[in-house]
């Protein structure tokens, strides 16, 4: 009887230990209390001037990548069905689990917008944003300058943000 009790206790402890997987306190992510969305290095060809650009993603994420005015954003390890990727004019600031400088968003894409490839979004597949409002039509190319982008996502319930990438710098060169 005692052995059964010990075994049950051990199973309960083990089950408690294995319940949560992954880190939910990653200071590098935009939303720190979430699971990471990774960005592996990738190269894309600008559809207009046919020049190749490389985005280094998580490998050297603190250094901005030089991209075209119509950048392609790609990520890996995405699990959620609801995602939002956005390009900011300023560094992203999060307070109390919410982005506070949404006025700085210049472009965004979310799961409600069609894409050709999963986890890869072409600039033309998103929408330009001005003062927090999505603009209809094809987004105008980005001006030269430094931008910041990130992608985050929700669980199936669409309530809390469970997934988030780091904040990556983009330097747009025309």
């Amino acid at each position: 009887m005692k052995q059964v009790f010990c075994l049950l206790s051990l199973l309960m402890v083990l089950s408690a230990c294995t319940k949560e997987t992954g880190s939910l306190n990653n200071e590098d992510l935009v939303f720190t209390n979430s699971y990471p969305i990774g960005v592996d290095p990738y190269t894309y060809t600008d559809p207009v001037n046919h020049t190749d650009f490389t985005v280094y993603g998580d490998s050297i994420w603190r250094k901005p990548d030089t991209v075209s005015s119509r950048p392609v954003l790609a990520w890996t390890k995405h699990a959620p069905s609801i995602l939002l990727a956005a390009i900011f004019k300023e560094p992203i600031r999060v307070e109390g689990g919410e982005i506070v400088n949404t006025q700085s968003i210049v472009w965004q894409w979310h799961s409600g917008m069609p894409t050709v490839y999963q986890d890869t979004v072409y600039y033309s597949e998103g929408k330009a944003v001005s003062n927090g409002i999505e603009l209809d039509g094809t987004p105008v190319p980005l001006d030269t300058g430094l931008y910041y982008w990130a992608v985050w996502g929700w669980g199936k319930t669409g309530v809390y943000i469970y997934y988030s990438s780091k904040q990556y710098g983009l330097y747009v060169e025309n």
Binding site: I82, S111, G112, M113, W154, K156, T157, G158, V159
Partner: peptide, 14 residues
């Protein structure tokens, strides 16, 4: 049930 993005189906939360 609540809406997320307009183009997506409403999601349910328990």
């Amino acid at each position: 049930e609540h809406k997320t993005f307009d183009e997506l189906e409403p999601v349910a939360v328990d």
